[in-house]
Design a protein around this nucleic acid. Structure first.
Lengths: 108, 108
DNA sequence: TTCCATACCTAGCATATCTAGGTATATGTC
DNA sequence: GACATATACCTAGATATGCTAGGTATGGAA
């Protein structure tokens, strides 16, 4: 479960340059060692939402062989949003780490 | 937002011994440096859910002064579940970390 | 020619957290 | 005595987010 970190992951995937939805899904799976094998029904709506929000821009491309693809790239606000998400993740994960660490006791 | 890791956090809070709901909320806030300031409407239902699932047990206690409290403690399955959740968190956070790291490129 | 991989899409479901209310007791303050 | 605040519990319903499960279409491999 990604619960709220999907946007960050998708934005980060596009940091290395433009890509189309299907390739993004494959990359997330590969790079995460299959920990995240996201269904299309999760990723495509997310891409639409992010474009709607102005964080991504898209254009249709027809490759030499194969079918049409919608290629997404980060906008300026997308890049800024990614930086925000990274900070949010850092804060979040450090807090969880601390809470899960163990060794906490109750005041008398 | 806790993004699905609330159960782990609550279970971990009770690892140091039994406690009542209100104290758990305060502890999570304090230990997380206010990153998680959870509303009661989030935590109480979670406690009920975890008790229903057999991961927690509760008894009513009346302290020398103050009103009645429902005190929760980890069951045996609760302890096991916590270990599972810790593993899940570890896997999850490492995957996100990798994906957010940056420096990824697209194959030619 | 049949199957699989590629590539896109959406409606509706499931679930988890939060909002916003409610009840009640004890303590401190004006 | 009156009133506010902190403690302590509870729940119905709204909201958000990801997933299920379906659909369309093209191109290459067996």
């Amino acid at each position: 479960m990604l619960k709220g970190h999907l946007d960050a992951i998708v934005l980060a995937a596009l940091e290395g340059g433009p890509a189309h939805g299907y390739a993004i899904i494959e990359a997330i799976k590969r790079r995460s060692g299959s920990t995240f094998d996201l269904p299309e029904g999760t990723v495509y709506p997310a891409l639409h939402r992010l474009e709607q929000a102005g964080l991504l821009a898209s254009t249709w491309m027809t490759p030499p062989s194969g079918r049409k693809r919608r290629v997404y790239s980060l906008t300026r606000s997308g890049t800024a949003a990614l930086a925000d998400r990274r900070r949010a993740w850092s804060r979040f994960s450090q807090a969880v780490e601390t809470l899960l660490k163990g060794g906490h006791t109750w005041p008398a």
